[in-house]
Design a protein around this nucleic acid. Structure first.
Lengths: 210, 210
DNA sequence: GTGACGCCTTGATCTGGATCAAGAACGCGA
DNA sequence: TCGCGTTCTTGATCCAGATCAAGGCGTCAC
């Protein structure tokens, strides 16, 4: 049923996909590439509040105005639906609504986990946490843990509430300690994921491990 | 319909209402009082990730295990429903599901706004932001802006990603600058709300103002 | 090639908020 | 009314991470 109203679009790296305050007529699913969700303070300080990777959903049924900036940071392909037909579809198909609620709850959990990172973790722990998340989302299952960083140092800093210099220094430190191995600037291999996880500061029992 | 399955319960200040990892059999609405949602790192560092005030909802349909600690910080009255009947109700009444999605999206927006605060704001801006939020939620409409702080300095610190000493110093500074007036330790009057809002660092146009 | 630009690293210094350390002000129960 | 615990304030010092500054290293256009 979705088939009838979907369209594909591709955007080059760096494109602003949505600007905060815009009216949004399209709801999308990210098919390929990587985009960031960010918010800006009046003097220009920026905080990333979410990272969009393939399979993530963009936009919110029932809400006209976008509250965040969304920017492609690599070439991005979206699969989009016009708002109205999609909202009708939800109203008619309860379990799509259920699914949407599930996804939103997952986002909320991720946001709150990130609040702990921003409020209480050290720079070292922040970097380790980001590496673990990227390992889980980007490293092919079953193989050695290996992935390409989709983010520049500056984008990582923006996500972690740090400066790009601190990010650079901490990555250097993790490499020096043998926790990660770099191939070029963006390639990361994690020889011992548990060792990396131990550096995140997270409570490993009792909590949610995603 | 909800009438049949609801029960009221009251808890004294300081009671743990839910512990992360617990199975949760009751979904609740907070009727009176104030509670905190928090997460803990392995070495005991704590970050509050949400504040629950009257009319807020606790628990999530479809999810058995609680991901966060919830603690009463004043005497709290809950209106609770058993999970199963409530979930059946949602499945049968689509627009309750819609409403729940709306509320979850609001929570997500609040969480992301808080991520900006934690990642990028100065101590001064953090305190001002908290005061603005409490003004909006707790001050009676139409009157002078006045409310009682429902939180100790320590709880504020935990919410803002600061220490209690820094919270105390910044409140003192705001008082010295005439931005707020204190009556006792907990009573706050804001003579000029716009002046306080100007200190939050938030972008006042283009964004969501809640 | 060789600029030039974008990204990244590394070093030197500074600073906002953390940490350590007393007290002071307020309940509250006996 | 008096202790005693809790909460809050204030001061002194410290330090993780910010800021300022100077290259290094790819890569792309010409």
């Amino acid at each position: 049923m979705l088939e009838k109203i979907k369209t594909y679009q591709t955007f080059p790296a760096g494109s602003p996909l949505i600007h905060a305050g815009d009216d949004v007529e399209l709801l999308s699913s990210l098919v390929e590439g990587c985009a960031t969700i960010s918010m800006t303070l009046e003097d220009g300080r920026v905080q990333m509040v979410g990272l969009l990777l393939p399979s993530d959903f963009i936009g919110r049924p029932g809400r006209q105005v976008a509250p965040y900036d969304i920017t492609a940071i690599s070439e991005v392909t979206l699969c989009s639906f016009r708002r109205r037909p999609f909202e009708v579809l939800i109203a008619e198909t309860p379990h799509i609504g259920q699914r949407l609620l599930e996804m939103t709850l997952d986002e909320l959990d991720a946001a709150r986990e990130w609040m702990v990172l921003l409020g209480r973790k050290t720079a070292r722990e922040k970097i380790a946490s980001l590496m673990v998340i990227l390992s889980k989302r980007l490293s092919p299952r079953g193989h050695d843990v290996h992935f390409e960083l989709p983010l520049t140092r500056e984008a990582m800093a923006s996500y972690l509430g740090l400066t790009l210099e601190t990010v650079s220094r901490q990555i250097t430190a993790l490499r020096r300690d043998g926790v990660i191995v770099q191939e070029g600037r963006r390639g990361i291999t994690v020889p011992d994921l548990d060792r990396l996880i131990a550096l995140t500061g997270d409570d490993t029992d009792g909590g949610l491990l995603a």
